Simulated assay, not measured.
Amino acid sequence: MADYNRWMNTKLYEAAGQLSDAQLRQDRGAFFGSLYETLNHLAVADTIWLQRFAQHPALGGLQEAMQGFPKPTSLREPMAASFAELWDYRTRLDAVILQFAQQLTPAHLAETLRYANTSGKPQARNVGALLQHFFNHQTHHRGQASTLLFQAGVDVGVTDLFTLIPNEV
């Protein structure tokens, strides 16, 4: 899923890079309004989750990797001032996600993560289930982003995870 995440984000950002800043920021009636704000939301949500995962004592490598990243307090907090900066941020974040995924073991997935949600309410949930949510959330909003791009006249192309599954014939 980390490979798929990076592949799709690269496709989205390359497609979005064909639009002007005004087109990227145009309110298109999506949940986060514009394509830019949708991409920003993905970056901020991924950052929030990675910061939470990094708090787990067994995931020390992630804690180190996340030291240079902010600790957002809102799902709409700006992660960058421009599309180019957001793309760079996304690229760095995807590298962390890949590194994190490679260090995970079945034992990590069985652990419980204790954290506070954005409202400050304590939570305790299974790491494996939270990772499923993490990747599903990305897919959900990337679907919205590809629709926004299509409405703006840009075709992202194939987006199916199936494309990355090797054919064993």
Rank of each mutant, 00 (worst) to 15 (best):
M1R: 07
D3W: 05
N5T: 00
R6E: 05
W7M: 11
M8W: 01
N9S: 07
N9F: 09
T10P: 09
T10A: 11
Y13N: 06
G17Q: 07
L19H: 05
R25E: 10
Q26N: 12
Q26F: 03
A30C: 03
F32E: 01
G33E: 01
G33I: 14
S34D: 14
S34G: 15
E37I: 04
V44Q: 09
A45E: 04
A45K: 05
D46P: 10
T47R: 06
T47L: 06
I48S: 02
L50Q: 03
R52S: 06
F53Y: 13
A54T: 12
Q55K: 12
P57N: 11
L59A: 09
Q63K: 15
E64Y: 08
M66T: 01
M66F: 07
G68S: 04
G68P: 07
G68R: 04
F69L: 15
F69T: 03
F69S: 07
F69Y: 14
T73Y: 08
T73N: 12
L75C: 02
R76K: 15
P78R: 14
M79Q: 13
A80S: 14
A80T: 09
A80Y: 02
A81V: 02
E85F: 00
L86F: 00
D88V: 10
D88G: 04
L93T: 01
D94N: 00
V96I: 14
I97G: 03
L98D: 12
L98H: 09
Q99I: 05
F100C: 09
Q102A: 15
T105I: 07
P106C: 04
A107L: 09
A107C: 06
H108Q: 08
L113S: 03
N117V: 08
S119T: 04
K121M: 09
R125F: 01
N126K: 11
G128F: 05
L131K: 06
L131H: 06
Q132L: 15
F134N: 08
H137T: 12
H137R: 08
T139D: 09
R142Q: 13
G143D: 04
A145S: 10
T147N: 13
F150L: 15
F150P: 04
G153T: 05
G153P: 06
G153K: 07
V156F: 05
G157R: 08
D160N: 12
L161W: 05
L164C: 00
P166R: 03
N167K: 13
V169S: 15
